[in-house]
Simulated assay, not measured.
Amino acid sequence: MSIKVAMLVGSLRKDSFNRRLARAVEKLAPGELAFEHVEIGGLPLYDQDFDGNYPTSCQQLKQQIEAADALLFVTPEYNRSVPGVLKNAIDIASRPWGTNSFAGKPGAVIGASIGATGSALAQQHLRNVLAYLDVPLLGQPEVFVQFKDDGPVDPNGEITVESTRKFLQGFVDRYVQWVHTILKR
């Protein structure tokens, strides 16, 4: 059974640390997980005025989320919170009222930053939003990765620090268990 995972990375930067982290997690995952990277950079800003007639790009985002079995959010921390581009995508996919595309899908939140707290505050804000949107979230292990110029993940998503590899593998293994548990309900 293939499990389709919608992966939303909250950074648009070409060499984003969070995009590197997403690639690393994807490489550690078993073949039963099929990751689909959800592009969020070209979306218009959410506006309730288009709830009755969603723009095509917003309809496509909702369809992509709805087609997924599970969710993985990979977020940087901007000014102690979630990047606007990620929050905008979440607002679009959860609206209009009564058409929340995320509801009931098992999910997890991870992130990276150059700061010592590795996106902890952004993740907490994101968890609050996703709890409201009825996304059952994996609670442990929490993944706060601090990036430096030399790693722990290179631009190709190769993990360069063995302790990081072991930790991320533990996360991936637990995430797979979580997804199976929620999908069996």
Rank of each mutant, 00 (worst) to 15 (best):
M1V: 10
M1D: 02
K4H: 14
K4P: 04
K4Y: 00
V5W: 02
V5H: 04
A6T: 00
A6V: 05
M7K: 10
L8G: 10
L8K: 12
V9G: 06
V9Y: 08
G10P: 04
G10T: 06
S11W: 07
S11R: 05
D15Q: 15
S16N: 10
S16F: 15
S16P: 05
S16Q: 13
F17I: 11
F17E: 07
R23S: 06
A24V: 04
V25N: 04
V25W: 03
V25P: 00
E26D: 07
L28T: 08
A29E: 06
G31Y: 11
F35S: 03
F35Q: 06
E36I: 05
E36Y: 10
V38K: 00
I40N: 02
G41M: 13
L43P: 00
L45F: 11
L45K: 09
Y46G: 07
F50S: 05
F50L: 13
G52A: 12
N53Q: 13
T56R: 15
T56E: 15
Q63M: 10
I65R: 09
E66R: 14
E66Q: 13
E66T: 15
A68Y: 02
D69H: 04
A70R: 08
F73T: 00
V74Y: 04
E77F: 05
Y78T: 11
Y78S: 02
R80H: 14
S81M: 07
V85F: 01
A89I: 05
A89T: 05
I90H: 02
D91A: 11
A93E: 00
S94N: 07
S94M: 09
R95A: 11
R95W: 08
P96Q: 08
G98Y: 04
G98W: 07
G98S: 00
N100C: 06
F102P: 03
A103S: 14
G104N: 04
P106H: 03
V109N: 01
I110H: 10
A112Y: 05
S113C: 13
I114T: 13
G115R: 12
G115Q: 04
A116E: 11
A120D: 01
A122G: 14
Q123Y: 03
Q124T: 13
H125K: 13
L126S: 12
L130E: 00
D134V: 14
V135F: 02
P136M: 11
P136T: 12
P136G: 01
L138V: 11
P141Q: 05
Q146N: 03
F147Y: 12
K148D: 13
K148E: 15
D149W: 07
D150W: 03
V153G: 01
V153Q: 09
V153F: 06
P155Y: 03
N156V: 06
I159D: 00
I159V: 12
T160P: 09
V161E: 14
E162T: 06
E162F: 01
R165K: 11
K166W: 11
K166S: 14
F167C: 00
F167V: 05
L168D: 08
Q169W: 07
Q169H: 08
G170Q: 09
F171P: 06
R174S: 15
R174C: 08
R174Y: 01
Y175I: 05
V176W: 09
V176C: 06
Q177E: 15
Q177F: 09
W178P: 03
K184C: 05
R185Q: 15
